[in-house]
Every structure is written in structure tokens, then in C-alpha cells.
């Protein structure tokens, strides 16, 4: 076993005092976080909030600038947030009155090894700019998000259902007001017991 030898292989060495050290991403003072600092300076009106929980940073942005901010962070020389891990939504129906949905993108910087969560809150029926021009991988994630929540992504090349069938007419299942068993009657096989059960050899009873 080696002690921490392999950890340092990927770590980029940044001179101290430049404001881009790796420690600053995990500092208790969120205003020192490089992403927070940069976005506050460049998008003062559209960067809404930043929250830290369990060493994870969540930034809340204006939904209208969702794609623009992702573009900025991807193409920034130092931030290099170039990888979209996950994109999904959370139905906040039971937690607050408005807006209804939180669209959540887990983004990651492969060179800096920094994970980040970007959130934008939109209301039911509103649309949000699609991230497909920034990350091709957002294509299927947004299709799933539309399928499950009914959120529209502006500029998506092919926004149709993916997991459910194309003619699914029961709405969007991951919404909180959607019953777990669906809106239609649950089909029960052999409800009237018209089909006789076979007796088993061992018990002499129906199974």
C-alpha cells in the first residue's frame, strides 16, 4: 500500500494566493468559492444563491440564464466545468407553494475534480433553456426529465418521451400529485376467480 501517492497524480499545482487553490472550493466561507466569486461578478442579477451541505456546493441561478451560465463555466479558462454528470428535476409541490420544479444539474470539472450542483426553479408550464448545445449528454437526460415531469426544454432537438411509451396519456409519473398506482384502474388478473387454480401434488390445495 502506498500512502497518498496516487492521489497527487491528478492534482494540479496552483501557486498559493492566486485565488484558484483547490482548498478554496471547500472553504467554509462560500464567498471564497471560485465559482461563486466568478458568477457573482459576471452575472450579478442572475446568480441567486449558494448553499453548502455535506461539503457539496449548490448554486441557484435564474432559469432564463441556465444555459448561458453553463456555457460560461464550461469555457472559462480556470473553472473548466466540462462534464455534465446528471440532469434531473425535483417536484417541490409539498415543500413550497411556488415555483413548482427545481431543475437540477450535477456538473463536474474533470481537470479540477470539483463537483457542483446548479439549480433553477421554474413553474409548471414554464420552459427552461436546454443544455444540449453545451453538453450532448443532456439530450437523453432532458428527454427523461420531460417524460417524468413534463418540463419543456427550449431548443432541445428531439423532446419526446423516452422511458414511457410515446402515446402514454396518464401524465408525468414523477410529479408528486401522481398516484403511485397511476390514474387508471389497476388490472387484476383473474379477479372473479373464473380460472380454476390447479391443485399441487404436495398440499392438495391451490397455491
Amino acid at each position: 500500500m502506498t500512502d497518498g501517492e496516487n492521489q497527487t497524480t491528478q492534482q494540479t499545482l496552483v501557486p498559493t494566493g492566486t485565488g484558484w487553490e483547490r482548498e478554496l472550493y471547500f472553504d467554509d466561507d462560500l464567498s471564497k468559492h471560485p465559482v461563486v466569486r466568478e458568477l457573482r461578478a459576471v452575472f450579478p442579477d442572475d446568480f441567486l444563491d449558494a448553499v453548502r451541505f455535506r461539503n457539496e456546493t449548490t448554486i441557484y441561478v435564474n432559469p432564463a440564464k441556465f444555459r448561458e451560465i453553463a456555457f460560461y463555466m464550461r469555457d472559462h479558462e480556470k473553472l473548466q466545468v466540462n462534464f455534465l454528470s446528471d440532469l434531473t428535476a425535483v417536484d417541490m409541490l409539498n415543500l413550497r407553494t411556488a415555483p413548482r420544479f427545481d431543475v437540477t444539474a450535477q456538473i463536474y470539472s474533470i481537470p479540477n475534480r470539483i463537483r457542483l450542483r446548479m439549480k433553477a426553479s421554474i413553474d409548471d408550464g414554464m420552459s427552461i433553456p436546454s443544455l444540449v448545445p453545451v453538453f450532448n449528454g443532456a439530450n437523453w437526460m432532458e428527454r427523461e426529465c420531460f417524460d417524468m415531469f413534463g418540463i419543456f426544454f427550449e431548443g432541445h432537438p428531439n423532446l419526446r418521451r423516452i422511458l414511457l411509451q410515446d402515446d402514454w396519456d396518464e401524465g408525468h409519473p414523477l410529479r408528486k400529485d401522481y398516484p403511485t398506482r397511476g390514474w387508471k384502474d389497476y388490472p387484476v388478473y383473474n379477479k372473479e376467480r373464473t380460472i380454476r387454480r390447479t391443485k399441487t401434488r404436495w398440499t392438495g390445495r391451490g397455491v
Binding site: 491528478q10 466540462n82 462534464f83 455534465l84 474533470i110 453538453f135 449528454g137 437526460m141
Partner: peptide
Amino acid sequence: ISYSLTGACLRGSGINYDVRKA
């Protein structure tokens, strides 16, 4: 990277990203 590939699909293209190391 753009298609958000991970695992051997990403590392087969030469990108060094393994969650166990990163």
C-alpha cells in the same frame, strides 16, 4: 466528455476520470 460518458467508454478514449481516484 460531451456525451457525459463514464467508465470504460470514457477511459477508452483516453480521459483519465475514475471516481475511485478523482
